[in-house]
Amino acid sequence: MTQLILFNLFNGLIVGAFYALMALGLSLIMNLTGVINFAHGGFLAIGGYLAYTLIPYLGFWGALAVAPVMTAFLGLVVERFLIRRVYGHDPLYSLLLTFGLAFIIEDGTRYIWGAQAVPYEVPSSLTTPLSSEYFFLTGYRLFMVALAAISVSGLFALLKWTRLGMRIRAGTLDLETVSVLGVNTAILRNLNFGLGIYLAGLAGVLAAGQLGVEPTIGSSLIMPSFVSIIVGGLGSLPGTLFGGLLIGVASALTSVFYPSATEAVMYVIMAAVLLVRPRGLFGQEGRF
């Protein structure tokens, strides 16, 4: 029993890390531009599929490095030609626009790569269990957790110590002033969008190894990411991270004791948080 709980706890941590990576990207974009990117899940799927296509040429490690960058580049293009047009308008329009994009991407991936999940090879050095007692501790799983932790730390470091990060943080608080101080906010928002999409692409590559990759993977991961943001509190990146891990672990543990509520539990947590603290656990007062 202990082993089963540990197994699910660890699984929950991994799934939570996916949620968090995706939700952090969503949060970054939303904080700076007020756009909820419904197509975020679509970019995640693209990341996974690009890695699948690149593996025969670049190998696992090469694909892991290149696929998220390519996804991010696609994000930059999409922002430049589509998303940019709805800044400053009613949030309704950004929702509808990215909603349509999500449809197009899901259908597009199905058209290019087929409706069935594609097999995704993880190097055998990573798949062997590290311990016979704790059979679930494969190298790949530990590697995923480690990589997610490194990416998240990298993101926070970038936001805290680099010039770009400082500008993103400042823009989140008051974009107009940042613009007046001579920062090109068009480029800033573009890069910020690309950064968010990079995280989605990275989550996609990692998820592909763990869950396999199929066209609907994006739409199945987007709702938990929303819940992570709501639970953690809008406007707070550490909150989003915490929210993602919390609901990942909570639904994994629920699957041990009451499997049919695996998905429902995250919404119960969300309802409880909204009841007690409408702005979310770490949300700033009066921001939304």
């Binding site: 709501i230 998905e263 969300m270 409408p278």
Partner: peptide
């Protein structure tokens, strides 16, 4: 649970509850 929220936040929470 939701009427205190506005704008994008309201939209997000209504989507999530729908699920």
């Amino acid at each position: 649970l939701i009427i205190r929220l506005r704008g994008v936040y309201f939209a997000m929470v209504t989507i999530a509850f729908g699920q």
